[in-house]
Design a protein around this nucleic acid. Structure first.
Length: 200
DNA sequence: TGAAGGATGATCT
DNA sequence: GATCATCCTTCAA
């Protein structure tokens, strides 16, 4: 059920981003199981991608996680407020990552609502990368955790997303990346209400 | 040692 | 649609 390490070690980060749609992301933090089905991702293509933190093989205390072997979590703080959860892919030394932008919540709804201080289920519970991390209780203490661990992992539950139901569009919030901002590296399940808002 | 700037989201008009 | 919350990372002196 858990995706094996080999799933993450392909050098085709764009294909992995596509394949992650329909997979299930779970966390088990402090005994609370939460998670859901991935419906939106973005690929960050390592050293040659101007939108990537590791563009030009920039290796810093923050980005060194991206240079590790595929199959671990890369978590960092954005705008001083939001934790963003990424999956590191490819082999050690090649800094590929997939940002998980939205999931359909399936497990631990009550816990996720509590974490976001919400009383009623609405799509914004897990729409958008900051929301996903907050609902799942993810913060930087999970950075570099293995996705084979008992705290955070991804499962294949046999869901197949038909290629016609997947849209590929430019990524969000990376206007600074010049021509790379136009690459169709954002993937989402068409019509799903949990996909984050911009150009749905 | 310091300053600038984010892979965003909630809230208000 | 505009604003703002809020803080770590990075790079320059």
């Amino acid at each position: 059920m858990k995706l094996p390490p080999s799933f993450y070690q392909s050098s085709d980060v764009v294909a992995i981003s596509r394949n992650l749609l329909g997979k299930y992301l779970f966390t088990n933090i402090a005994g609370e199981l939460t998670g859901g089905m991935i419906v939106e991702t973005e690929a960050y293509n390592g050293a040659v991608d101007k939108a990537s933190h590791a563009y030009g093989n920039k290796n810093t205390p923050r980005t060194q996680t991206m240079f590790m072997e595929g199959g671990i979590a890369y978590v960092y703080l954005c705008y001083g407020i939001h934790h963003l959860f990424n999956v590191v892919t490819s082999v050690a030394g090649e800094p590929h990552a997939v940002l998980i932008r939205a999931i359909v919540p399936t497990n631990g709804l009550d816990v996720m609502l509590l974490r976001k201080k919400m009383t009623k289920l609405k799509p914004n519970l897990t729409a958008g990368p900051g929301s996903v991390a907050k609902a799942l209780g993810i913060d930087r203490s999970l950075n570099a955790f293995s996705l084979q661990s008992t705290e955070v992992w991804i499962e294949d539950r046999g869901i197949e997303i038909h290629p016609d139901d997947i849209s590929a569009v430019p990524r969000i919030g990376v206007a600074y990346a010049a021509e790379d901002a136009l690459l169709p590296y954002r993937f989402y399940v068409k019509g799903n209400q949990y996909v984050s808002k911009p150009n749905k």
